[in-house]
Write a protein that binds this DNA or RNA. Sequence first.
DNA 1: TTCCATGTTCCGCA
DNA 2: TTGCGGAACATGGA
Length: 263
Amino acid sequence: MPELPEVESYARYFARHALNQPITRADVRDERILGEIRKDAFARKLKGGAFTSVRRHGKHLFAEVAAKKTWLHLHFGMSGDLAYYRDPKEAPRFARIVFDFAGGAHLAFEDMRLFGVADLVSSPDSFIADRGLGPDPLDPKFTFSRFAELLERRRGAIKSLLMTQEVIAGLGNLWVDETLYLASIHPRRPIDRITKPEMRAIYTSMRRLLGDVIARHERGGKMPAKSLYEHREVGDRCPRCGGTIERSVVFGRTTYFCAKHQR
DNA sequence: TTCCATGTTCCGCA
DNA sequence: TTGCGGAACATGGA
């Protein structure tokens, strides 16, 4: 379930469990999950190191291996997840890489659909720059004026822009729909027809939503009954205004919205 | 059997 | 140059 809030939860999970334990083995069980690097080079570079810190940018997770001067980079695709466990029998069915630690524990990078990627990179900052990723919306430096700048001289549907990782890094289909629902903006609204107050509504809704979803992951709660998330079905009643939930395709993705209050 | 899925990339066209 | 539609990738669940 990996958009920004999910990856943030994975990053915290990684930091809580898998830091500062010597890596005795990096077992690549399906080489298709690797990016550029080959399986033996990946394993050789990590063996004997230890993860020392974790960073997240957008949907990307980075774990530093300071002694080896490298960072593990993970992208979770559509179905990626992490699992930390002691008994090897608990390994997830679709574990693509398993890190064995000296203390006897294991960290699995699982990804059923194999759209995820694992790689080694020299630093998160150089990766972000090379990839041309936009700012992370939860970065404290990501102010409203920076957000407004991103919308300048842009055309097209607001949903497409918010989904584009080179513009803003981290939002995906689900939480873009939820953001626009909260801000009462139609997903196809042309960017150049969004007013300043509406921009602020989008900015505020987006940041509050992402924080809420992260907090919810931490305590394992459901989304509120009033959320679009709980009503992603054609013909459902909008829990905020009683309008009808409709579906269309925007930016190639199934899009749900309230036909009444999202304009 | 068929359709759909929280992502990304590449190609062709306007 | 920018934006968009479509297809592809791999796999399981409804």
